[in-house]
Simulated assay, not measured.
Amino acid sequence: MFKFTLTLAALAAAASAGAAAQGPDSIRQRPTFELALGGFVTDHDAAIRFDSAALGRGTELDFADDLGFDLSKTVLRADAILRLGDSGRHRFDASYFRLSRASTTVLEETIQFGDQVFTYSADLDSQFRLAIAKLNYTYVVSRGMNHEFGVSAGVFMADVDLGLTAPDFGLSEREAVTLPLPTVGLRGQTEITERWTLKASTDLFFLETDDVAGSLADLRLSAEFAVTDHVALGAGYYYVTSDIEYTGSRDTLSLGYDYSGLVVFLNFRM
């Protein structure tokens, strides 16, 4: 809740900064296209449960305690902004990164994952992949010389793949699913000086249908320093928390996933 409040406060600052001091005709020409590439130092915590129509409710598995995954990793992250039209009111935001984990551990209890039961003391090989892609359309409702602020709608695409194998027993089970989650949110930025820019965003998902139920909050706060007119050096903090349950034709996947971390990036502006 603190991170959520902090991000909204930054967005409110982005919306108001400059609005009080600038007239409606004082409009800054912002880049048409921005591409930020950087290293995302992420820490995550997750729990997953894979139910079976044949065996019933599966075991809730903690990624660190039960599967032995390392919870910290540095990955490449890409973020882009495209502004359309002369009015500056329309923009698209996109993001992508991918996390992969692999581990081998000895089970401390018997677990059920999907249609397989892995027994106590078995050697368990685990492979996990999470790819996140986001696309948002933002309508800028307030803009001035030193700020822009808008409301957005988009899709948060989570590609989840987890496989468990007990080679000594010849057992293997895998669940792979792609979850397109519709989101609504806010986006804003304020140019503190000619070279310093503060950006913030939040995307929210709350939904309950026959197939998908749960919630998600995606928060970002970053600062950029313009080295040249076309290149900026930036650093930001990202935080995502989600609790999703997906029901397929036969089985149900329940995933609670939190990740956060610092990203350091170069932003190329055109």
Rank of each mutant, 00 (worst) to 15 (best):
H147F: 03
F33V: 14
F206A: 15
E109H: 10
A21W: 09
S126I: 05
R77H: 09
K199G: 12
A64M: 10
F69H: 05
G39C: 08
E108R: 08
A9W: 09
S52F: 10
F33K: 09
L253D: 05
D25G: 04
D243P: 02
F149M: 09
D159T: 12
A166Q: 12
E224K: 08
R89S: 13
P31C: 07
I48D: 00
N146S: 13
G39W: 02
A64D: 14
L162S: 00
D159I: 14
L35I: 10
F97N: 00
D51S: 08
E148H: 10
L179E: 13
F63H: 04
G256Q: 11
S100C: 03
E208A: 14
E34N: 11
E34L: 02
P31M: 06
S201F: 03
R49V: 03
A235Q: 08
F63Y: 15
S215V: 05
A53C: 01
G150T: 05
E224M: 10
G150E: 06
L164N: 02
A21R: 12
E208N: 15
V177Y: 04
F97G: 00
V227R: 07
S100A: 15
V117H: 02
D159F: 13
T247G: 10
A166E: 15
T197M: 12
R83M: 08
F69W: 07
V184Q: 11
N267G: 03
I244H: 05
A80V: 05
A166I: 08
Q127E: 14
A200I: 07
I192K: 06
S260R: 11
G236D: 05
F97P: 01
K134H: 07
V240G: 01
G23L: 05
L219Y: 08
D203T: 11
R195K: 15
T5K: 11
G68E: 07
I244A: 02
H90Y: 13
T105Y: 02
L37K: 00
S260K: 09
F2A: 14
A14Y: 00
F169V: 06
G234F: 04
V263D: 05
L198A: 13
L35S: 03
S172A: 14
G88Q: 13
T110H: 04
Y238R: 13
D93P: 00
D210V: 02
D211F: 14
T138I: 01
T228Y: 06
V141D: 04
